[in-house]
Design a protein around this nucleic acid. Structure first.
Lengths: 101, 101
DNA sequence: AAAAATATGTTATATTATCTCACAACAATA
DNA sequence: TATTGTTGTGAGATAATATAACATATTTTT
């Protein structure tokens, strides 16, 4: 089900290196609801590679002057599209196996 | 080239949670040469998902009473096999594109 | 233009995580 | 019995992260 790309295991310092974003920015984008890292028991943030990719998209859009609220909408749209794609694949797989049974 | 599975980004604490192994064990297996995590500038260990998988294999073999020296050999064999597989795939790809050119 | 909101840096203080090293303990082997 | 292998634990030091507050430009709104 959940692949490595989605597993929340990366600490914020590494994410900062990976993306080139400051800790402040990374936390701020979370505050604005553009992503939601997991948390360790004691409160530490944990990110996935998916999160890292999201942050890089955010960085790009920010450089283009787009505000976080707008970026948030864009990300949600993408997420919705991806969800629909996933459903379709699941549907096709189901159909496939129904036929073969 | 290097996929997410190979990227060294996970701290030892998370690896410990993921594998159920104590920090002590994880460091000890490294000392014995069964795996080699990356390092941050300041000396912190960084693991990949591949490393995590390796550690789970190690845990299994240890439960079966196998010593680290033996496990190390086994892992090296696997690594060699994998390398050969990779070479073959690369070779086939090259042949393929030579033909098409 | 004035006021409000955005986005980010910086500083302070506290807590948690990690590092290395050493010593202990026990099991397995030579 | 002496040695080696494996793991736990404790000490002391350093690094990483958390939250919160304040400062400050730069936009956006009113």
């Amino acid at each position: 089900m959940s692949s490595y790309k989605e597993k929340k295991v990366i600490s914020i310092g590494i994410v900062s290196e990976l993306t080139g974003l400051s800790l402040r920015k990374i936390r701020y984008y979370e505050e604005r609801g553009l992503l939601s890292p997991g948390r360790t028991g004691k409160g530490g943030r944990k990110y996935s590679f998916d999160d890292v990719e999201t942050l890089m998209k955010i960085a790009e859009r920010r450089e283009e002057g787009v505000q976080t609220a707008e970026i948030k909408k864009e990300l949600n749209k993408e997420k919705t599209k991806q969800k629909i794609r996933d459903e379709m694949i699941k549907g096709q797989l189901n159909a496939h196996f129904r036929m073969r049974k």
